[in-house]
Each structure stands twice: as structure tokens, then as C-alpha cells.
């Protein structure tokens, strides 16, 4: 233990049991530790850096720039996508709000429509119409005698007005003959 560099300055003697302890046979067995070897420090090697050519440097710069551009483009794309997503969500929320608002207005308008229709219906109830017709317009209800029935039991007949004859007068013109010919089945 004493060989360890950390405890090199430590006085381990004070940890030793008293002599009486050894006498009683209760002494601890002291095992000798192998000697501590100091680690070798790694030795640095000086490597000479090769010098780049201008073309190489330019190529590397170009590559670097391209890489940076790629990263930038990807970043912009991601940012755009994120912005678009955010905007989309905003729009959806906005439109949902609008839809809800318009739906509420529609429902309100429908309710109002029903109310007004009911009001209208109540104003033109049979009772009110009858009272108005009777009292304000002096009308009476339609009665059976006002219905005129037409007798349709007879055979078909033609009545020619003003003493005109149903028979064609004189000779028919060529046009009329042609029309009759065309009408004929």
C-alpha cells in the first residue's frame, strides 16, 4: 500500500493494531501488494502537414460552400415547412372559427325565419282570414249552388261560331293541298 504514490506520504503505522492484538492472535494478515509501476507518458510525434495546392484549397472551399448551401437550403426548407404547417394550423383554426361563427349565425337566422313564418302563419290562420273576408271585405263562403257542373256524358260535337261553315269554301290552294298531304299519315 505504501508503494502507491497517492499514499506515499501517509504514515500507515498509526493504523497498525496494537501489539497486544498480535499477541491475542487476532492480527490481520498483511499481504504485500505488488510494487506500483509508474505509467509511461505518451510520447508526442510531430507530423509535418502537407501543404495544399491552390486548386485543392479552392476545391475544398467550394465543397465547403456547397455543404453550407445544402445545410442552408435544408434549413430553409424545414423552416418553410414548419412555417407552412404553422400557417396551415392557424388557417384551420381561423376557418373553424369562421365556420362556427357562420353556423351560429345560420342557426340564428333559421330560428328567426321559423319565428317569422310562425308569426305569418298565425296572421293568416283560417279564423283571421274568415273574419277579414266576412267583416272587412263583405265576402261570403262558397256554397254548393255556386258550383256549376258541366255535363260531359254526350258525344263530342263541334260548334262553329258566326255562321261559318265547317266545310271548306271553294277550291283549296296548292299550299293547302300540300299541307294536307304532309299532315296525312
Amino acid at each position: 500500500m505504501a508503494n502507491y504514490p497517492k499514499y506515499r506520504d501517509t504514515d500507515f503505522a498509526r493504523f497498525e493494531p496494537p501489539a497486544s492484538a498480535y499477541e491475542r492472535g487476532a492480527a490481520r494478515k498483511i499481504v504485500e501488494m505488488p510494487p506500483f509501476e509508474e505509467q509511461k507518458k505518451p510520447q508526442m510525434q510531430l507530423v509535418e502537414k502537407k501543404k495544399k495546392t491552390v486548386a485543392q484549397a479552392r476545391r475544398e472551399m467550394r465543397l465547403g460552400a456547397r455543404q453550407a448551401a445544402k445545410v442552408l437550403v435544408i434549413a430553409i426548407c424545414l423552416l418553410s415547412m414548419f412555417a407552412a404547417l404553422l400557417y396551415g394550423r392557424l388557417r384551420v383554426d381561423e376557418l373553424t372559427r369562421q365556420v362556427n361563427s357562420v353556423s351560429a349565425k345560420l342557426e340564428e337566422a333559421q330560428g328567426e325565419n321559423v319565428r317569422l313564418n310562425m308569426q305569418l302563419d298565425s296572421m293568416i290562420s283560417l279564423e283571421k282570414v274568415e273574419n277579414f273576408a266576412k267583416n272587412d271585405l263583405g265576402m261570403t263562403k262558397v256554397e254548393g249552388y255556386q258550383i256549376e257542373y258541366i255535363d260531359l256524358t254526350g258525344t263530342d260535337s263541334i260548334t262553329v261560331s258566326g255562321g261559318k261553315s265547317a266545310e271548306p269554301k271553294g277550291e283549296t290552294s296548292i299550299t293547302e293541298k300540300l299541307l294536307e298531304y304532309l299532315k296525312a299519315e
Binding site: 340564428e108 333559421q110 330560428g111 328567426e112 325565419n113 321559423v114 319565428r115 313564418n117 310562425m118 302563419d121
Partner: peptide
């Protein structure tokens, strides 16, 4: 089909 009772929002 004359309406005798109808509900609406209020």
C-alpha cells in the same frame, strides 16, 4: 302539411 308545431333556436 300545415305546420301546427315547430321548434326554432331562441
Amino acid at each position: 302539411m300545415k305546420v301546427l308545431a315547430k321548434s326554432a333556436s331562441a
